[in-house]
Structure formats: structure tokens, C-alpha cells
Amino acid sequence: MTSIDLQQARLFKWKKFATEGAGRLIIFLVGSIILWWLISAFLIERPDRYLPSPLSVVLSSADMLYKGSLISFYSDTLIRLVIGGAVGIAIGIPVGLALGLNRFVADMFYPLMNFFQSVSGIAIFPVIVIWFGNSDTTVLIVILYTSFFPIAFNVLSGVRSVPVRYIQAARTLGASRFQVVRDVLLPGAMPSIAVGTRLSIGFAWRAVIAGEMLAGRPGLGNMIFSGQEFDNTAQILLGMVMIGVTWIVLDHFLLRPLESDTIERWGLVQR
């Protein structure tokens, strides 16, 4: 190999590192932080109010960490997400199953569910506030309500997509109606359950933030809202970054792998 070839190979390796995977992500992160800092330092008139620099956001996080409020806000939000999402999914799966098993029931309740799905959780928020006041219950009901529909509809279509042949095969082996549900329909609907879970948690995440903001319950949503009320823009930015990063981490490291693993393992259709 000549030295020119070696040089070329080295250049190529750098180019590859810079345009793929982890290297690209690092360059992107560093680049956007520098860009943010430049904008806040040179383009904005009152950066403290309109766009604080990355440093002041870090300082604000250190401050909140020291006071202990950051951890408590964060855990409040996550606990709400988990409880509300879990209950919504726990109700959604059996409802979806019931609708999927019986065409008569499905035809009867599908339009109703369709209507209430388009009544978004945020829109019914004022109604829930009238019923339950500005309480944790209100926020939880809104989360539960938003996470219920995606999973229910996905389970319904998942059960419907199980080939009739599988059910017939189980029947000829002497399976009872319950056994057919347990051994054929539920596993067959597994991929849809995974897809629905991811969607449900996604909707729930938005609902948590909105609910906390509107009801004024402690949490990330409230943190960014009070940042606006008390003129603390660094706190708003910190909250926004945490909201975005949490969702990306949750989605890419928990929900998506769960979804693809389930589809791979239980999938009737290879994607």
C-alpha cells in the first residue's frame, strides 16, 4: 500500500466516523450546543429572558438538584406516567380483546369509541377539573383516558388479524373457547399489543405534561410552567430538554426494542 492509499483510507475512516452512528450523534450534540450558545450570546438581546445560554441551563439544573426539587419533580412525573399508563393499558387490553372476539359487540361499540377517541384528553380537561378539582386524580384520569384508546384499538385489530385457520386448528385439537383465547388469540395479538403499548405511552407522556401544567400539580410540566410565571427561562429550557431526552431514551431503549422483539418473536408477518 502506498502512502497516498494509506492517507485515503485514514480520511475515509474519519468520514465514516463523522457520518455514521455514534460519531455523528456526538458531532451533532456538540454542534447544536455550540450553535445554541452562539445564538444566545450574540443574536439575542436579553438572553436571560429569551434564550439563556447552555451554561445557565446547566447552572439552573445544579441549583435545582441542590434544592432537591429537580429529582422530586422528575420522579412525580414518571410515577404519574407509569400509574396512568399502566391502568389505561390494563383496561385497554381486555376491552380490545372483547371487541375483537365478538363482531356484534365490535359493531356496536366501535363508533362510540371512535368518537371518544377524537375527544382528546386535553379537551376534556376542563370537564374533569369541574368534577375532581385541580388534583392528582384529575391528571391521572386524563393520562388514563389518553392511553386507553391506542391500545384498545390495536388489540382489536390484532385479534382480528389472527388467521382463522389457527383458531380452527386449535378447535380441532379440542380447545375450549377460553383455551383458544389464551393459546391462539392472545399470543397472535401480541405484536399489536406491543405496538399499542408504545403508542399509548407516547400519548400518555404528552398528557402528563399538559395535565401537570393545567392542574398545577408538581412535576416537569409544572416546572416549565412555573419557569414562565417566575421569569426563569433557564428552568423552562431545562424542563424541555428533560422532556425530550426522557422520551427519546424511553422510546429508543425500552419501547422500540420491546416492540421489535415482540414482533420478531410472535409476529405472524415478518417485517
Binding site: 429569551y50 419557569g227 414562565q228 427561562t233 425530550g244 422510546d251
Partner: peptide, 16 residues
């Protein structure tokens, strides 16, 4: 990232 920071989370900053 922009689609992960849901539209709702932008409201306080937009008010500022």
C-alpha cells in the same frame, strides 16, 4: 428531538 418535545411543552417558552 423536536418531535419528542411535544408541542405542549413549548407553551411556556412561547409565552415568554
Amino acid at each position: 428531538f423536536m418531535n419528542s418535545v411535544s408541542g405542549i411543552a413549548w407553551i411556556p417558552l412561547a409565552i415568554v
